[in-house]
């Protein structure tokens, strides 16, 4: 066994194509658990943790670009302007896990419970992949996440970044688990209002093979908010029955299973509650002057 430690992204991509058996490791918070428990014994590791090119984030062409090596700790500290993503980052593991765990690792692990994924889905993010042979390509999150622990990453590729238009409107992430810290989600939900497109976007984690969008609930909410005038005047009241129906539609879009962490029925119920709450927070949480009446 050996550890390849490229100093630049170009070297890393070269190493990736020359040595496809070398297992990429970034923060190590998924990889090292498998190594420590003898579940993973690759011939080599490809250490991505020293690639400055992947570590940061910036804005470019009206989009936010998050490097694959950006840690949850930095998202939590630096990206309060993206509350749903920042809340998701804050809910990951513990401070120690957030100091190391990266958004690229969360994407490549492709766990149904990956906490960054609902926010990225609600932002309609694209994933940027790179290889030495073919350069960069950009795929939608849906094209990237094929199923539980399955992605469309090619053996010679690395995840370079994830990018999206910064949404204009309130958003939130919430997660149900057995306690407050250090829990894998039993169900999670991100709701993002897009006030420019007059749309409501809802993505759910841990209730399907991969992150799911609740498209009927989204369309229903967009219509209901438009009818209530809520996109024009934040004071416009939205009936409680609308919130309830929205929750039910989100629950109906879940495809949960029974497992040790919860039953399918419980998960569906959790989604209903999370969706209803998230929409009422979004309606309350808009800037002064456009604020909903209590």
């Amino acid at each position: 066994m050996e550890v390849l430690r490229p100093a630049t992204l170009a070297e890393a991509l070269e190493a990736r194509s020359a040595r496809p058996e070398a297992f990429p490791i970034a923060g190590g918070t998924d990889v090292m658990v498998a190594v420590n428990f003898d579940r993973l014994r690759p011939e080599a590791f490809l250490d991505l943790s020293r690639l400055d090119e992947l570590r940061g984030w910036h804005e470019e062409d009206g989009e936010v670009v998050l490097g694959a090596g950006l840690t949850f700790a930095r998202i939590e500290r630096e990206l309060a302007s993206l509350p749903a993503l920042a809340q998701a980052a804050r809910s990951v593991g513990s401070p120690q896990i957030r100091a190391r765990g990266t958004i690229g690792g969360n994407l490549a692990t492709a766990s149904p419970a990956g906490d960054a994924l609902p926010a990225l889905a609600a932002y309609e993010a694209d994933v940027v992949l790179g290889s030495a042979a073919r350069g960069e390509r950009r795929v939608s999150l849906r094209e990237f996440l094929l199923g539980p622990k399955r992605t469309s990453l090619e053996p010679d590729e690395l995840v370079l970044a994830v990018r999206f238009r910064s949404p204009h409107g309130p958003g939130s992430f919430s997660k149900v688990g057995t306690r407050n810290a250090m829990v894998i989600a039993v169900a999670s939900l991100c709701l993002q209002l897009d006030e420019d497109a007059r749309a409501v976007r809802v993505a759910m984690g841990s209730v399907g093979p991969t992150v799911l969008r609740a498209t009927e609930a989204e369309a229903f909410a967009a219509r209901a908010l438009a009818e209530a005038g809520a996109f024009d005047a934040a004071a416009a009241p939205v009936p409680a029955a609308t919130l309830r129906e929205f929750g039910q539609l989100a629950g109906a879009a879940a495809r949960p299973i029974d497992d040790v962490r919860g039953t399918a029925a419980y998960r569906r119920h959790a989604v209903e509650v999370l969706a209803r709450r998230a929409l009422s927070w979004a309606l309350e949480g808009r800037p002064a002057g456009r604020r909903a009446a209590g």
Binding site: V3, R5, G28, F45, R100
Partner: peptide
């Protein structure tokens, strides 16, 4: 300068 779980860091890192 950041507190981490040293069990999850590869020594080589």
């Amino acid at each position: 300068g950041e507190v981490v779980c040293s069990c999850l860091v590869l020594a080589a890192q």
